[in-house]
Amino acid sequence: MSLDPATVRRIARLARIRLDDAEVPPLQTELNGILGWIEQLNEVNVEGVEPLTGGAQMALKMRADEVTDGNIRDAVLANAPDRAGDYFAVPKVVE
């Protein structure tokens, strides 16, 4: 399947990346090139195969459900682009 310009814009919107109109046609060509090449996976018979989700062939370890970190407010806020007191500041969200 091939992406049309509206789909390219929709994906960019979902990914929260602003696209200028001039960026759409080259991106459409590149993404279609990649997706067209990926189509080869349709040749593979995956009937009855369980999907492999992780890189480790082991069961994940459990740990006690207890707090092991915290009280590092200043470290958490140290790289904030904008802050108001002890909070991250953003543009007004609710009128």
């Binding site: 929260r16 990346i17 790289n79 682009p81 904008d82 543009p91 007004k92």
Partner: peptide
């Protein structure tokens, strides 16, 4: 996302801030 660390490019609302920052 331009909120907690790294680059921020402001926008008129939060979505614009995200989109401008990431672009």
């Amino acid at each position: 996302d331009g909120v907690r660390f790294g680059l921020r490019k402001d926008g008129e609302d939060l979505d614009q801030l995200y989109e401008n920052t990431r672009a």
